[in-house]
Design a protein around this nucleic acid. Structure first.
Lengths: 125, 125
DNA sequence: CGTCTAGTTTGACAATTATCTAAACAGCGT
DNA sequence: ACGCTGTTTAGATAATTGTCAAACTAGACG
């Protein structure tokens, strides 16, 4: 039963990396989010769900887009859910998923280098 | 909606997740970046490097902030480097690291849900 | 040359993860 | 109640990953 987990919303950090160094705790929390994104299947799943923002997506619409088995999709959805990136609800036969914008925004902001000064750090590798 | 901020030139992908679903290839590419961020030590390393944006950081300044061994730090720096998130150069005795803003910006934008009209649905039971 | 310091590479090991098949569970329509 | 479809759980396995100690490389300084 895919019960929706409580969203541990952007409690950790909203400050870009460039502004301030992370503490150990917030790093652990945020890394959990990025780790969930660090798989091609999960990233595409999230992408498919997010591209219907406001709306929801049924699992049956997702599985068709992949070659991996159903249980594998289910597993990846669980990882995304436990990372707080998506929410879900069963309605009748189907289970619907949606994104959690706040969580995505928190991760996005952390990487937002343009938020701080120093627009051109043109150091070449 | 109008894009609010001038965007650092991102090499691979500029479109937020909410706008368009990812292809298999770009998902694999981007997932590599997120996977590199999906570890607390690496995230803190990046944070320490990025918080001196424009400047560089010597490895010796990084190791002190961690309890893990030197080789482990070195390993994580390599992962970040191979993900294209940081660059490095040896000068004399020391090795200096810096962030690659464009790469961070690309990942940040991908998660930028505010770029599209998204009702902040928040937490629903 | 020898040696010291800074950092990386190698090799090993335990822990985690991605994936599958098989089974269980949850609703719907007879 | 029974079967059918959609979805998750359980168990197993192969691959990946995080970590360390030991060995190695690169440069500085006598």
């Amino acid at each position: 039963m895919p019960n929706q987990l409580p969203v541990l919303a952007a409690d950790a950090c909203c400050t870009p990396l460039v502004t301030e160094a992370l503490t150990e705790e917030s790093a652990a929390d945020l890394a959990r989010g990025f780790k969930a994104l660090g798989d091609p299947v999960r990233l595409r799943l999230l992408s498919l769900i997010a591209s219907r923002a406001g709306d929801e997506v049924c699992v049956c619409d997702l599985t068709d887009a992949f070659t991996v088995s159903g249980p594998t999709i289910s597993h990846h959805l669980k990882v995304l859910r436990e990372a707080g990136l998506i929410g879900c609800q069963r309605r009748g036969t189907w289970v619907y998923y949606w994104i959690v914008p706040a969580k995505l925004a928190a991760l996005s902001q952390l990487l937002d280098v343009s938020a701080a000064a120093t627009p051109t750090t043109g150091i070449s590798a």
